[in-house]
Lab assay of single mutants.
Amino acid sequence: MTEYKLVVVGAGGVGKSALTIQLIQNHFVDEYDPTIEDSYRKQVVIDGETCLLDILDTAGQEEYSAMRDQYMRTGEGFLCVFAINNTKSFEDIHHYREQIKRVKDSEDVPMVLVGNKCDLPSRTVDTKQAQDLARSYGIPFIETSAKTRQGVDDAFYTLVREIRKHKEKMSKDGKKKKKKSKTKCVIM
Rank of each mutant, 00 (worst) to 15 (best):
T2R: 10
T2G: 12
T2W: 03
Y4F: 12
K5S: 04
K5N: 09
V7Q: 05
V7P: 00
V7F: 08
G10N: 00
G13P: 04
G15K: 00
G15C: 00
K16D: 00
Q22D: 10
N26F: 02
N26V: 02
H27I: 05
F28E: 11
V29D: 11
V29C: 10
Y32H: 12
Q43G: 07
V44D: 10
I46K: 08
I46N: 08
D47M: 01
D47K: 03
D47P: 05
E49I: 03
C51A: 05
C51R: 05
C51D: 06
L52Q: 14
L52Y: 12
D54N: 10
I55R: 04
L56D: 13
T58D: 12
T58F: 04
G60S: 08
Q61Y: 04
E62Y: 06
E62P: 10
Y64F: 10
A66V: 12
A66T: 09
D69V: 01
M72R: 04
M72I: 12
R73G: 12
R73C: 09
R73V: 05
T74W: 10
T74A: 13
G77P: 00
L79N: 00
L79T: 00
F82D: 00
F82M: 14
F82Y: 11
A83F: 01
I84D: 15
I84G: 15
I84Q: 15
N86I: 03
T87N: 12
K88Y: 08
S89V: 04
E91I: 02
H94N: 15
Y96Q: 02
E98S: 04
E98C: 01
K101M: 13
V103T: 02
E107G: 10
E107T: 08
D108S: 07
V109H: 04
V109G: 01
P110K: 01
M111I: 09
M111E: 00
V112N: 00
L113G: 01
V114Q: 00
K117G: 13
L120T: 11
P121Y: 11
R123G: 14
V125Q: 11
T127K: 11
T127D: 10
T127S: 13
K128N: 13
A130C: 10
R135D: 10
S136L: 06
Y137S: 04
Y137I: 10
G138R: 01
F141G: 02
E143I: 11
T144V: 07
K147R: 15
K147W: 13
T148Y: 14
A155K: 00
L159M: 03
V160G: 02
V160D: 02
V160F: 05
R164I: 08
R164F: 04
K165T: 02
M170A: 02
G174F: 01
G174Q: 13
G174S: 14
K175M: 13
K177W: 09
S181K: 04
K184Q: 07
V186G: 15
V186C: 06
I187G: 15
I187S: 15
